[in-house]
């Protein structure tokens, strides 16, 4: 299926020392000062608005880009806005070694592709993920490739429920297929 194949330019969320940022919490992704906003279109401008070194992300990001982050991405609150702000920016997918449970669910339920990557640090150290590279992957099989460098990669594919929801579009649409 075409929807299964994702391709885009990557942003690797590194800190000022060049280390992948772990435990990025929802206040850093979408600050609670903007929680009263209910219109998704308004949320993009605040994405990563409280993450040191990345506050200008909404300006740099182009539709179709892919974000790569450190483990336990999305720790903190249950706010859906922390997913919606990326949807608003038309971010293509988010890859990380692990996500907080709530964040992961929120993304899955919105049909937004979040996928696991093992050994992210060594992939970054081995220059297999460099900001600006274009990568492509299949959400169902986990087959991936860094197109800019011609390197094949492997990411963790979606689970069956995640894939079903993703295919339906979101949790609501999926729910309606069940009855």
């Amino acid at each position: 299926m075409e929807k299964d194949i994702r391709q885009g330019r990557i942003w690797v969320l590194l800190d000022k020392n060049g280390k992948i940022i772990e435990d990025i919490d929802t206040d850093q992704i979408y600050h609670n000062a903007h929680l009263h906003i209910t219109d998704i279109a308004e949320m993009g401008q605040f994405a990563l608005g409280n993450l040191e070194g990345w506050t200008d992300f909404p300006k740099k990001c182009q539709g179709g880009d892919i974000i790569i982050a450190g483990r336990n991405f999305g720790a903190g609150s249950s706010r859906q806005q922390a997913v919606d702000c990326f949807i608003a920016l038309k971010v293509n997918a988010l890859l990380a070694p692990s996500f907080s449970a709530i964040y992961f669910r929120n993304a899955v339920n919105s049909g937004f592709p979040v996928l696991g990557v093992r050994d992210l640090e060594s992939l970054i150290a081995g220059k297999k993920f460099v900001s600006g590279d274009v990568i492509r992957f299949d959400v169902k099989t986990g087959q991936a490739e860094n197109l800019s460098r011609g390197i094949p990669l492997k990411i963790e594919p979606m689970s069956s429920v995640q894939y079903e929801i993703f295919k339906a579009g979101d949790l609501f649409k999926y729910g309606k297929t069940l009855t």
């Binding site: 249950s78 709530i102 949790l171």
Partner: peptide, 30 residues
């Protein structure tokens, strides 16, 4: 519930879990 600290309910042996608004709307309905 839409509260990331819903798991505080573990204190009384209850499985509480915080979830986002999509999840909760779906739970309201189903």
């Amino acid at each position: 519930g839409t509260d990331s600290h819903m798991n505080v309910l573990g204190a009384v042996g209850c499985f509480g879990q915080g979830m986002g608004d999509v999840d909760i709307a779906f739970a309201f309905k189903t």
